[in-house]
Design a protein around this nucleic acid. Structure first.
Lengths: 218, 218
DNA sequence: CGCAACTTACCGACCGGTCAGCAAACTACC
DNA sequence: GGTAGTTTGCTGACCGGTCGGTAAGTTGCG
C-alpha cells in the first residue's frame, strides 16, 4: 500500500515557489520563531535538507517573504497613488487601497506577507532590516508629502503632519488585527469607514452657534 | 581581584521582583523568543537554575509581565475613565491617557509591558491568551459603549462604531512604533494631536457653500 | 540548627545548517 | 533508439549549539 502522498519531483522554480508560498503562510500564521525549517519541509512534502537545496538560509527566507510583501504594497498602493495628481484624492486612494489590501489578506488568526512587514522586524539581519526600512520610509514620505500638499492647498486642518501620517498608518495597519471576513463589515465598508473617520473625524459638526471645542485638555 | 559584581543574596520577594522587572525590560527590547532564561539569569546576576527557584516557567513569566501591563492599563486609563460621566469627555480622557502611557514607556527600539500586550500574543498558552483577551475585550467594550453613548447624544458622525473604536485603538497603539522621546513632539503634544485628528478629522471645513464630499469613491 | 537562597552539573529535545550520495531526468553520442 | 555521462532534485545521517527545565548538593543568614 502506497502512501497517499505522491512524491512528485518538481522543477526547481516550481519547488522554490512552493517553498516560499508555504513558508509565507506558515510564518504568517504561527510567527517566524515558532516555524522551524523542518515544519516547512514537512508541509512542502520534502526533507529539511531538500529545502536547503533551494533556499540559502532561514533569514533569507524571511527577508524574501517580507520583500514580496513590500513589492505588493508598492504595486497595489504606492504606484497607483503616484499617478493621482490631486493630493486629497491621492490620500483617499492610499487609505482605501491599503486598507483593502490588508483586509483581503487577513483571515482568522492568519496574516499575509503584507502584514508580516510590521510584525517580524526582529529576526532580520541589520542589513536586511535597513533595506526594508528604507522602502517603508519611502511610503511614509509619500503620505507625509501628500498631507503637506493638502496643507498648502488649505485643505488640511491645523494638525502636525508627522502625527497625522502615522495616525493614518496606525488605523490602516490595525485592520489586520480586527477585521474578519465573515464579520458584519465588508472589506469595502471598512475602507470606507476609515476614510470617513480620517477625513471627517468622529464629532458631529454642531449646527448651532456654539462650536465644539476640540482643544480643551482641562 | 574580585569581580566587580557583588553577589549579594537577596530576599525572596526582592529577587522575584528583580527577575520580573529585568525580564520585562529584556523581553520588551529583544522579543520573547530572542530572550533566553540564561540571558535573564545573567542580567540578574544569578544562574538559570536560580531563576527557576523563583519562577515556575518561561510562559508564566511572560503571562505575568503581560498581566502587569494590563494592570497598568486598567489603573491609568480604564479606571479613571469610568469615573467620567460625560461620554465625549471620557473618550478624550481615554485617548489622552492611553497615548501618553504608551509614549511614556517607549524609548528607542524598546517597549514596555504595556506595549508587549500587543506584540507577544503568540508564546502564550491558549488558557493565558484567553484570559488576557477577555481583559482587552472589556477595554474595547468601554470604548465602543462610549461611542454608542455619544451617538445617542447626537454627538457622533454617522460612522460604524466598531470601525471607529478599532481605528482609535490603531492610532493609539501605533504610537509605540514611531514616537521618540527626543523627537520634535512631546508626549503631551502627541496625545493632543491624536485627539484632534480623532475628533475633528483631517479635512478643513470649507467656509463657502460647496461642501467637501467625504463619500466619493470614484 | 534549619530553612531559604542559590550553584553545579546535567538532561532530552530541537534548532539551523551541512554533506555525501542516490536516483530520476535530461543530454550527447553512436 | 539504446546507452553512457551529466545534471538536478532530493534523502538520511549527522553536526555543534542552545533551548527550557530539573535534581541534588552547597552556602549563608536568622
Amino acid at each position: 500500500m502506497k502512501n497517499g502522498k505522491k512524491q512528485t519531483r518538481l522543477s526547481g522554480v516550481e519547488r522554490t515557489d512552493q517553498i516560499y508560498s508555504v513558508a509565507a503562510q506558515m510564518i504568517c500564521e504561527r510567527g517566524f520563531d515558532a516555524t522551524s525549517m523542518s515544519d516547512i519541509a514537512d508541509a512542502v512534502g520534502i526533507t529539511k535538507a531538500g529545502v536547503y537545496h533551494f533556499i540559502p538560509s532561514k533569514k533569507e527566507l524571511l527577508f524574501a517573504i517580507m520583500s514580496y510583501g513590500m513589492d505588493t504594497l508598492e504595486a497595489v498602493v504606492i504606484k497607483p497613488a503616484r499617478e493621482i495628481a490631486d493630493a486629497e484624492e491621492r490620500l483617499r486612494a492610499i487609505i482605501t487601497s491599503h486598507s483593502m489590501l490588508i483586509a483581503r489578506s487577513s483571515n482568522d488568526e492568519g496574516h499575509s506577507p503584507v502584514t508580516i512587514l510590521v510584525e517580524e522586524e526582529l529576526g532580520l539581519s541589520p542589513a536586511h532590516r535597513r533595506k526594508l526600512r528604507q522602502r517603508k520610509r519611502v511610503y511614509v514620505d509619500l503620505i507625509r508629502s501628500t498631507l503637506e500638499e493638502m496643507k498648502a492647498e488649505g485643505k488640511l486642518k491645523d494638525v502636525d503632519v508627522t502625527a497625522a501620517a502615522f495616525s493614518l498608518l496606525g488605523m490602516i495597519l490595525w485592520v489586520a488585527r480586527w477585521f474578519r471576513p465573515d464579520g458584519k463589515l465588508s472589506r469595502e465598508q471598512v475602507a470606507e469607514e476609515i476614510c470617513k473617520i480620517a477625513f471627517g473625524g468622529l464629532l458631529q459638526i454642531q449646527a448651532n452657534g456654539k462650536r465644539k471645542n476640540t482643544e480643551q485638555t482641562e
